[in-house]
Amino acid sequence: EGEEGSDVDGPTELLPKLEVMGQVVPQLRFLCVEEEDWFLRLHVTLAGEMSGVVGALNQCFGADRVGPQVRALQQLEKAIEVLVRVHYTAGIGQPIGADVPQVRPALLMQRMHRFLPHVKELGLSPHILRATRVYCATGIDQPCLLHLFGVEKDDNALGRYREWQHGTGSELPRPHREYLESCLDSPSMRSLVQRAVGAHKLTVQELARLELAHNSCIDMVLRLFNRRIELVRTMFGDDMLREEFESERASLIDARLRLLVERREGLTETPLEGVLSVGDPLGAPAG
């Protein structure tokens, strides 16, 4: 059985993890080229390590006090960092001269593109759709993380593809779609923090802890998304999804909290000096 407190059912020791990534061998091969094995190894390992992200997301969405929220965000940051390291191990984002797998990612798409189904209702060209599939190939982690930090959906290739993923006609397993819906139905961490600031009087120390944990986690999400666009560009060229990614990157940067700066500049509508303690619920009146 799974470990106590784990969010994954079944024997967790059988999950593909970063430490044994090199031992992941596909049982079924379609193209029979090393690039196919490399791509599958990368994403199977990411799926195995996603259990840590899911556990941290559950803690984030379930936390209603300052202390647990800070700890949940710190746990999430560490879990996302593991996903970043999986990309590095696959050679994505590594500097020139580093010891990386000797593969040609562009060759994979040259061989595979004719077998990928086109989704006409998305209104995307086949080339853009293929690149979007690769960027979003990790599944539900991206929309869950974007929602957690209050990032609005873009009406571009990435936004439309993720919206299609939510539907019953997508390729996502039903339990994944149901979990995604449960996340999207929960208030974002950003909204909870802003509600606490607007309705209560947080101390400077509590503001600093929340802001640091929140913004550090966003920085780690940016590192992860940077690895995804680097993967896309190794397969499709440097200009692929440039505008879409820059828009998403800007939205994530805008989602960073600036509570201490606003306090210093006197821009907040409600004075922030006060007595809400780390143990007080974020949604309860200050005593």
Rank of each mutant, 00 (worst) to 15 (best):
D64R: 04
E34A: 07
R228A: 11
R233D: 08
F39W: 09
Q59S: 04
F115W: 11
I128A: 15
T234N: 11
S216D: 15
E243Y: 10
R104H: 14
E265H: 10
C144L: 07
L124G: 05
S125H: 02
L148N: 10
D154R: 14
S182N: 06
V221C: 15
N58P: 02
L129S: 08
G169N: 07
V24L: 13
V204C: 10
D219N: 10
E265V: 02
S247H: 02
E206D: 15
L145Y: 04
V204N: 07
G10R: 07
T45L: 06
S247Y: 08
E19K: 05
H166P: 00
D141M: 12
L207Y: 10
A47D: 12
W164K: 01
R209V: 03
L272R: 13
R174L: 05
T138C: 12
T270L: 07
E3L: 02
L46D: 13
E1Q: 12
V33D: 04
G22L: 03
E171G: 14
L282Y: 01
R177T: 13
Y88H: 09
R41C: 14
Y88N: 06
A98K: 04
E13G: 10
L116M: 00
G5W: 01
V82Q: 04
A208I: 01
F115P: 01
L267M: 05
L73H: 15
L83I: 01
R227M: 14
Q142G: 12
P101L: 07
C183R: 06
V134N: 09
E244D: 14
L107K: 02
P285V: 03
V20I: 08
H176E: 12
M112D: 10
P101F: 05
Y135R: 02
M189C: 04
M189H: 01
G279L: 15
G52H: 14
Q75F: 11
F115L: 09
M220H: 01
H166F: 10
P95T: 02
M189N: 00
L116G: 03
I229R: 04
L57Q: 02
